[in-house]
Write a protein that binds this DNA or RNA. Structure first.
Lengths: 232, 232
DNA sequence: AGTCCGAATATTGAATACAATTGCTGACGA
DNA sequence: TCGTCAGCAATTGTATTCAATATTCGGACT
């Protein structure tokens, strides 16, 4: 994930990171001219980066209208989380018997940094560390293609699950669940770990649904509201 | 999937279709100048299309070296087929209770065209119809995100499963399995259908493994062989 | 006042032009 | 004979320029 040798690659990574960090809310237009000037490149590599990110599901491009940060509806998020349950549980089952102490140490390390990020309310760090912790658990499965798919799913869903954590004060629960998950991996109880992981993801889904309900209620109570230009 | 309003979109679709049709073997270099001339566009939209296809897993781009048609090793194919088992079975379970007569009719139609394509040894049509048949069965699940993921997985794996079918004379078996699958959907036996689908995909995997073994043996027996330029 | 139309502006799409990198060829020397 | 390295050709990467489409804003008309 270093700067990359080509500008297109560098821009792709930079944009991906900034989107994942939540710098722009979902739906924010990504103007080619403005972004390319800001990044100090021409529009050509920027456009290529946007195409790639579109295929990754992070931005949505409408012909002749430009790109916006991808937006997921609640049913869409639920779908993707369900896919994550299927893939991540399967991979975890294969990973646990192969996990060495080294793997677990890496995961524990990430979990510690995750906890400190939670305490400092460092939202963007949270999302990254959460994904990295999950990935660390799966690494031993040695299924790179599947892991890449899972990573893409995280990239698409983490912005939303993170939002849920932040707004529902589930930080404690999230950390506790991660700790328990790691413990189950340590004692090689793959079945229990997979079941627990399933619940972990489904909990996030439930909390997110509840939050959406509340959000919808608020939006309904207050009449519609126009958004104005963002300042440069 | 019509010509698309922008050249980038049109080129993306055209290249995707030609790759899926097997026009170029895996590993074939896709020269920008040659392809853009052939398609009657400049290199700009072509490059954007290649980026998108790379994110879809259909081509591989190496910096400053160009794009090649994506190539999967046997373990990678096995991985992706396993993911397909997980996703497709899950979706099928949800689809069957919701399938109407209309859904089943569409699937039956595709199956018939699939059969005729098999008889005519129309390889490229085979692959498309196979994927479309599977998709038709899942349509009723109303999980568009998951279906899109499954479609991408088909795009990446179908070239290989098709090859396996062609070279192992499993055409009869493939058609028979599809018929049986459709029958199980008709009698709303979701559990059996999912189990059968699982076996269906795993059969393809086994046959493919066998073929790879044989292929490896041949390659080992015969010394290496240089490939020359393709004619324009 | 409100709505509809049209020119001006902003933004995206694509082609051309230019720069940088790769790899090929062949001469040179140990 | 083999390796090495200079220089050229081929290819990709990026910037600039031009064209097409969308949006905005102002004014005329109902």
């Amino acid at each position: 994930m270093q700067p990359a040798l080509t500008l297109t690659g560098a821009v792709t990574n930079a944009l991906r990171q900034r989107i994942l960090a939540g710098e722009w809310p979902a739906g924010t237009p990504l103007k080619q001219e403005a972004l390319s000037r800001e990044l100090g490149v021409s529009r050509v590599p920027l456009r290529e980066a946007l195409r790639q990110l579109e295929a990754e599901g992070l931005v949505t491009i409408a012909d002749h209208k430009g790109a916006v940060v991808a937006q997921l509806s609640l049913p869409e998020i639920v779908e993707l989380l369900r896919v994550r349950v299927l893939l991540e549980c399967d991979v975890l089952l294969e990973a646990i018997p192969r996990q060495t102490e080294a793997h677990l140490t890496v995961a524990a390390e990430l979990l510690a940094r995750f906890e400190s990020a939670l305490q400092q309310k460092d939202i963007s760090a949270w999302g990254i560390l959460n994904a990295q912790f999950h990935m660390a658990l799966y690494q031993a499965a040695e299924r790179p293609q599947t892991l890449a798919l899972i990573e893409q799913l995280h990239n698409r869903t983490d912005r939303y699950t993170r939002m849920q954590i932040l707004l529902t004060n589930f930080s404690d629960r999230a950390h506790q669940e991660h700790s328990e998950l790691l413990a189950l991996c340590r004692c090689k109880d793959a079945i229990s770990a997979a079941a627990y992981l399933r619940q972990h993801i489904l909990h996030a889904e439930e909390a997110l649904e509840a939050w959406y309900q509340q959000q919808a209620a608020e939006a309904c109570a207050r009449p519609k509201r126009r958004t104005r230009k963002r300042s440069e």
